[in-house]
Amino acid sequence: MAGTAAVAVTSLTMISQAQPNANPAPAAALMKIAFTVNGTPRALEIDPRTTLLDALREELHLTGTKKGCDHGQCGACTVLVGGRRINSCLTLAVMQQGAEITTIEGLGTPEQLHPLQAAFVRCDGYQCGYCTPGQICSAVAMLSEVQAGIPSHVTADLNAPAAWSEAEVRERMSGNLCRCGAYSNIFEAIQTFAGKRP
């Protein structure tokens, strides 16, 4: 019977957006902010609500950094701040005063690819390309983390220096989703690149 698939609606009407707002929201006062992006000093006057991700994409038109989820769940927005990888969707631009930011545009250009970008091309470590800048930025920092001896979830001995292994790389890259499913090739690209490192 269709009737068994019922919805339990107790009240006749409901109102969405539960928080009423008697007074219209005040306009956000713009704030001045300065940081360095890919070596270039940048100064912005910006709505404090603007994330670093939106500042890069919408203000600076550096659209290589991607918005996949805007909630820290996919890693497409990964950039390097002071050499460390972060989700640029979960930090405000105003929180990055003085920061040194590196985006995918700062690694290489189509004419002069960064060796890791070249390895991604050679190993076909991407398909639709939307997660790719995040994967590449993430991998660059991830390799530094391994080199710095930072352990991971799969590091067997916490008191030994972290070492390169397939499992280590796959675990450490897990904050970057790729729905096209290029993981197997992304690993090979990272391995190819890392193998060339001095």
């Binding site: 994409r57 038109h61 550096l62 659209t63 290589g64 950094t65 991607k66 918005k67 985006t103 995918i104 545009e105 690694l107 290489g108 250009t109 189509p110 004419e111 690819l113 970008q117 070249a118 991604f120 091309v121 050679r122 076909d124 991407y126 390309g129 939307y130 790719t132 800048p133 590449i136």
Partner: peptide, 21 residues
């Protein structure tokens, strides 16, 4: 062959819909 759109995609210069500034 490597994909011909690879350099654009891996450098973030491939432009997706929302990026048409």
């Amino acid at each position: 062959f490597d994909r011909i759109d690879g350099p654009a995609k891996t450098t973030g210069t491939a432009r997706y819909a929302y990026e048409s500034h």
